[in-house]
């Protein structure tokens, strides 16, 4: 009953009129000299009762209809297969280049376009997931919190098609993405899907904070690294040990950082759109755990239903009225 609300509650005063059918039914009685002589008849008693109840229901339905009764937004608890996924998209300028490191010329699409296209398909496939979208470049961009509304997620992904921004500030992006899981029920798995074409060094302070946050939120990390041709990869080990530092090879050090977190972590190095697709398909099959989630059902207007019932019952009463025999 808590889910029922009214647009114009004062119209509920009309419910008081429900006593009218009790006091008077529409039929004018004809006089009879002695009703005690008429034998008791169950069917007639039922009919009289039915007439009264129907009359009361009509009045009730009409006043409920006038009061604009509606069902509040509802949450239905469901169990599906899926995960809470936060997409962390790199919006640095290099994402607008192709995998070959050039500006897209029509025959090749940019890395961000590939990511968009494949993520859109991915979102389409994941029926019960709650997906959030965030992006980062110089600073993190809050795009869309965790939601089950697929249209909104699609729109959020499409919105990243605007021209990219300058740099890659991955630590802020990661902490924003991880903060999405705060105050969310712990059900199914929590996935942070990072899609980037580069990395940056993480300073020790934020490294410590990230380490704690990711541990706390029990996040599973996936990193789809869109590698530009001839650029250093995640798994590359430098020949010269002098180059082995986070400033020279941020990708390798980010990978090592993720590995050291002791959370489930998987990195994919994709050098062309097909590899990206493969990586995403991989995630799709891996992350299908039972998920406990609430489906939202929008507010439902019940006044139409009330009016419909009022009309049905009124027609019924009208039909019965036409059966009345007057003397």
């Amino acid at each position: 009953m808590n889910d029922i609300a009214f647009e114009t509650p004062w119209a509920l005063a009309g419910l008081l009129l429900m006593v009218l059918p009790l006091l008077k039914t529409g039929a004018a009685p004809s006089a009879y000299s002695w009703l005690a002589i008429v034998p008791a008849d169950g069917l007639s008693v039922l009919l009289a009762l039915f007439l009264r109840i129907t009359g009361m229901s009509v009045v009730a339905a009409l006043s409920l209809g006038l009061s604009g009764v509606y069902l509040k937004e509802q949450k239905v608890e469901r169990i599906g297969r899926g995960a809470h996924i936060v997409l962390l998209l790199d919006r640095s300028r290099s994402m607008d280049d192709t995998f070959a490191g050039r500006a897209p010329d029509g025959s090749n699409e940019s890395k961000s376009a590939t990511a968009r296209r494949l993520l859109t398909e991915f979102v389409e496939k994941r029926k019960h997931d709650r997906i959030g979208v965030t992006a980062f470049s110089t600073s993190p961009l809050f795009v869309m919190p965790l939601t089950e509304n697929k249209q909104a997620v699609q729109a959020a992904i499409a919105a990243t098609s605007s021209p990219a921004l300058a740099y890659t500030n991955i630590s802020k992006g990661l902490s924003l993405a991880a903060s999405f899981f705060e105050q969310q029920p712990l059900t199914g798995s929590r996935i942070l899907l990072l899609i980037s074409d580069g990395a940056a060094a993480i300073d020790p302070d934020s490294e410590q904070a990230l380490r704690q946050l990711i541990k706390q939120q029990q996040i599973r990390l996936y990193w789809v690294f869109l590698r530009t041709e001839n650029s250093p990869g995640i798994f590359d080990v430098p020949e010269d040990s002098r180059n082995d530092n986070s400033d020279a090879m941020p990708e390798r050090y980010l990978h090592l950082f993720f590995k050291s977190l002791n959370v489930p972590y998987q990195a994919y190095e994709a050098e062309n759109p097909d590899a990206v697709q493969k990586a995403i398909a991989d995630i799709d099959t891996l992350e299908n755990r039972p998920l406990h989630y609430f489906e939202r059902i929008a507010k439902q207007d019940l006044s139409g239903l009330c009016y419909r019932w009022a009309v049905i019952l009124l027609l019924l009463l009208l039909a019965l009225k036409s059966c009345e025999v007057r003397r």
Binding site: T25, A27, P29, S30, V38, L51
Partner: peptide, 22 residues
């Protein structure tokens, strides 16, 4: 048919669903 009778003395009303049996 449906008839409604009112007792002329105690003013009680009764609705009867008339049928050959009744």
């Amino acid at each position: 048919g449906i008839v409604k009778f009112q007792d002329s003395e105690n003013m009680r009303t009764r609705t009867l669903l008339m049928r050959p049996g009744l």
